[in-house]
């Protein structure tokens, strides 16, 4: 009889009653990612997207209003640094001199994605707009349309698909293998990976920040064993700050990679390898 009592006690210890609300529990993911409408049809992510476009416009408006003859400073300096970064580090490295006409497109893309990524680390906003699939999906779709249209425009419909599906320099027997792979990789995997890369990077960063913020909060505001848990809670808080700094880098890197890959795809469609 005593052993049954003990067993009951052990079981009761192991299975805490639900709803006790003690300890650390991760909230359902949709409460982190889905935002209620502020105005019908407009939520936080939409506001961030609109503000990104607006801030970019204002930056380049202010930059272009300034006297171009003087040495650039302030907004104009920043805008010129971004333009030169796009021209030197992205277009010249991937497309060469002939790709200079794509500067405004890639510049807008880079600025917009970077400004959409950046709210993920700004305190009290803490939500990258690209951590929702909407914007990355649209951007990837746009890139897909643009590079296919460029290829068709430069090589003709037949020539473009011939170059894509039957890449030159491959033995004829291998086309059975190569053609389906190329078809899927160019027309399906490219936009898919483009969208998923941006989205998943920003979502993963956002979730990391949420996890460490919640962990440090629940440790620092612990009700029992405070003398022990509060000092431990400092550790995830330090990691949270470090990860926030890391996310600045990720926000830039993802915008850069998205733009570079776009440039590579467009460059490949413009000049097929012979």
């Amino acid at each position: 009889m005593f052993s049954t009592q003990l067993a009951i006690q052990v079981v009761e210890k192991l299975v805490p009653a639900a709803g006790e609300g003690r300890g650390f529990s991760f909230p359902p993911i949709n409460t982190i990612l889905r935002w209620k409408d502020v105005v019908p049809g407009i939520n936080k992510v939409v506001i961030i997207a609109i503000l990104s476009a607006l801030i970019g416009t204002v930056l380049f408006l202010v930059a272009s209003m300034k006297d171009a003859r003087k040495a650039p400073k302030g907004a104009r300096n920043l805008a010129e640094i971004i333009v030169e970064f796009i021209e030197k580090n992205i277009i010249m490295e991937t497309m060469g001199k002939s790709g200079m006409g794509w500067t405004p497109f890639l510049l807008t893309m880079f600025v917009f994605i970077y400004l959409c990524n950046l709210p993920g680390i700004i305190p009290f906003i803490q939500m990258p707009a690209t951590a929702r699939m909407g914007i990355p999906a649209f951007m990837a779709l746009l890139v897909w349309v643009v590079f296919n249209a460029t290829g068709i425009k430069h090589q003709g419909l037949f020539g473009y698909f011939k170059n894509v599906l039957f890449p030159p320099g491959v033995p004829k027997a291998l086309y059975i293998l190569v053609t389906p792979i190329e078809l899927i990789s160019t027309l399906v995997v490219r936009p898919f990976s483009l969208a998923v890369r941006l989205f998943a990077n920003m979502l993963a960063g956002h979730l990391l920040l949420v996890i460490f913020a919640l962990l440090s909060q629940s440790l620092i505001q612990a009700e029992t064993m405070r003398f022990f848990l509060i000092p431990i809670g400092v550790l995830p808080f330090g990691l949270l700050i470090f990860l926030t700094a890391f996310e600045i880098l990720v926000a830039f890197l993802q915008a850069y990679i998205f733009t570079v890959l776009t440039a590579v795809y467009i460059g490949g469609a413009t000049h097929p390898e012979h």
């Binding site: 049809g41 939520n43 997207a49 917009f112 914007i135």
Partner: peptide, 10 residues
């Protein structure tokens, strides 16, 4: 709505 607004603003 996020897709449409994002697309529009971009």
């Amino acid at each position: 709505k996020e897709l449409i607004w994002g697309a529009g603003s971009f």
